[in-house]
Computed example of a mutant assay.
Amino acid sequence: MSSVLTRALRRVATVPRNMRRFASQGGDHGADEVDKWRKISIVATGVVILMSGRELLSLSSHGHGEHSDKPLPDYMHIRSKPFPWECSDCSLFDTDCFKKCKAERAGELVEEH
């Protein structure tokens, strides 16, 4: 049985002589392709960095990042339920609201005592 298995494996393992191997084109062709795509990647990365920098500079001069001291309109202060922390009316990163809330709570504690 082992001789039958050995012959079958030899037939599968051998490549017919008339079959052309497309992968063996020579070592210098592969190196040229690698070099070409490395250059293309470097140029594309540079273009993306330049375009991102341009977009960043145009956004910073646009003026959306400026905050005013005016109170927020009512439509921007809608709460369907209170937040789960001590100052339940303040959003998570609203430091001014937290300061006011804590000052009010400190004033209430002083009045109680």
Rank of each mutant, 00 (worst) to 15 (best):
E104V: 11
I49S: 00
D94Q: 06
D94W: 03
W37Q: 06
R21H: 01
A13W: 09
K81C: 08
D28L: 01
R7T: 12
D32W: 01
E112P: 03
G30D: 04
L59N: 15
F93V: 15
T6R: 14
A44V: 01
I40W: 02
S24W: 00
G26E: 00
C97A: 05
S61K: 14
M51V: 03
R11A: 13
R20Y: 04
A31D: 06
G27M: 01
G26R: 00
I42T: 06
R10M: 14
A13S: 14
I78F: 08
L9G: 12
A13L: 13
R10A: 15
H67N: 09
V110K: 12
A31V: 07
F83K: 09
C97V: 05
V110I: 13
W85D: 04
G30C: 03
K81L: 07
H64E: 12
G46Y: 00
L56T: 07
D89V: 12
M19P: 00
P73S: 10
L56E: 05
V43S: 02
S58D: 14
R79V: 03
E55P: 03
I49W: 00
P71R: 10
M51G: 00
R38Q: 04
G63A: 07
S58P: 06
P71F: 07
L56G: 06
E108T: 09
S3H: 10
A44I: 01
C87Q: 05
R7M: 12
E66I: 10
I42L: 06
S52F: 06
E104L: 13
V47A: 01
A8Y: 14
G26I: 00
E111V: 09
V4S: 07
G107S: 13
K102Q: 08
D35R: 07
L9S: 15
T45P: 00
R10K: 15
P16T: 06
S61T: 12
R10E: 15
S41P: 01
S88D: 09
R54L: 09
S61M: 11
H62W: 15
W37F: 09
K99G: 02
S3I: 06
L5V: 11
G63K: 07
V48N: 00
S80R: 08
K70P: 02
W37S: 04
D89S: 15
